[in-house]
Design a protein around this nucleic acid. Structure first.
Lengths: 243, 243
DNA sequence: CGGGCTCTTGACACAAGTCAAATCGCGTGG
DNA sequence: CCACGCGATTTGACTTGTGTCAAGAGCCCG
């Protein structure tokens, strides 16, 4: 019943790098199954070491770190096509947790097979490193955003990012993007308080730039949203491998 | 005149993972030379693609992103043992710049040889991915710090990190750590204004926790510094590969 | 009908930013 | 040898973006 890699619905998007027939075949062998989880499930725990690695196929989640006092820093939102567990694969243990926000379907890979991938399929191993570099890039960008932008700017940037990614993977319907997160999640991602996030969202509504309600984001004026996000130029597509 | 990998002064530190004799030999072949640069030299430019990759051998530098308005976000400080140019190696171009703060000596690798490394030396390729994961970890930690801690806490955290790393690589002399950065660099790394950074440093001095003057950091009370940094437990060593 | 989440709002406090100017150090050139 | 200039560091005065506290409103579900 599980999806064949050959028919993977994600491969067709331009966001992801092309794969050769041989690579698809290898991925099929690398994949040991599919995992379906409920919303709220913790997929990886900070400090633990998962025997499994995943690629998100459907649904959304988030990566985060927790502090002693209970605060969270959301590191990134997990969308279809994202690889989960690289740290568990190469390091001793995960440095952050991963949680499903909606019900999710994930391709499951065996951690032990990772080494075989490096030994027998250098192209795929190269792609994995590429992926790690992409992650690094986005984290660096997040750091720059949280370090230097105002609340309004940060939220605008987050919306632009999520909007573009959703468009790139056909996750938008009638110009609305499915964003099933809580305001608290966004606040934790941007280093803002819940209250201030809420008030800033209100501003975006009043200025008729974007409305985020009931888990759906409607961008009313993409140009103005980009302006608020301090992004003048047109979006530059970032191609990444799919694993 | 250049250092042989066999005699690399960095290898002996516990911070770095052990290497087999064969690995050392391969690294020697991978290394195409040594680069010595003056303070202030830009090693990598955001948006460009370097034909060379480096590992810092001596000296210090920093990685940063620049904004349209001239602001910078310092992503991390580059210390001996750090690999530079992973993004240029696997992606189209660098997403941040790298600059030498002091005179530096770097091991030079050929970008084209990277692929051969993946093809012929999977263990080393694995280590490279491991390194990427370590970078990701530190960036995530920085994001958490900037997103959730007060000015005092952020600076204390930065000092603890740099202090521990310096101790681990024998860069401290008489309990003083060489920190040749400007206050502006630290401010840009922590998302604080220069003025506020300066005033917070003064507090640390007055409370006799740490003094940073003329490029040297003297930690007067390591326990209190850790307390301010919200770090209770003893430091947990993070081993990383050396490439 | 009554909890328990989210989301909203308003009032208030304070950490951190901005502006401006003084001081210190240091290398350069007269 | 001293005057100058420039960058880095300090300090003070004032402003403001965000955080915190508190309470209410909307909504879903048992």
């Amino acid at each position: 019943m599980s999806t064949e890699c050959r028919d993977c619905p994600l491969r067709k998007f331009a966001l992801f790098a092309e794969m050769t027939e041989g690579e698809v075949e290898f991925m099929q062998g690398f994949k040991v199954g599919e995992l379906v989880v409920d919303a709220g499930t913790t997929l990886m725990m900070e400090g633990s070491n998962s025997p499994q690695l995943y690629t998100a196929l459907r649904g959304m989640g988030l990566r985060y770190k927790t502090f002693e006092n209970g605060d969270r820093q959301v590191l990134s939102f997990v969308l279809p096509g994202d690889f989960i567990g690289l740290q568990a694969g190469v390091m001793r243990e995960m440095q952050h947790s991963v949680e499903a926000t909606t019900p999710m379907t994930l391709c499951v890979f065996d951690r032990k097979a990772l080494w075989e991938m490096f030994r027998d399929h250098p192209e795929r191993a190269f792609d994995l490193t590429w992926l790690a570099a992409v992650e690094e890039h986005f984290l660096g960008e997040s750091l720059a955003i949280v370090g230097h932008m105002s609340g309004l700017g940060r939220i605008a940037r987050a919306f632009v990012r999520l909007h573009d990614r959703a468009i790139a993977t056909n996750l938008s319907i009638n110009g609305e993007v499915h964003l099933p997160y809580k305001q608290q999640d966004l606040a934790d991602a941007l280093g803002l308080s819940l209250v201030h996030t809420n008030k800033t969202l209100k501003k975006l509504r009043e200025q008729e730039v974007a409305v985020w309600r009931n888990g759906w984001l409607k961008v009313l004026s993409y140009p103005r949203l980009r302006a608020l996000a301090d992004l003048n130029e047109t979006p530059q597509p970032m191609v990444r491998p799919l694993i």
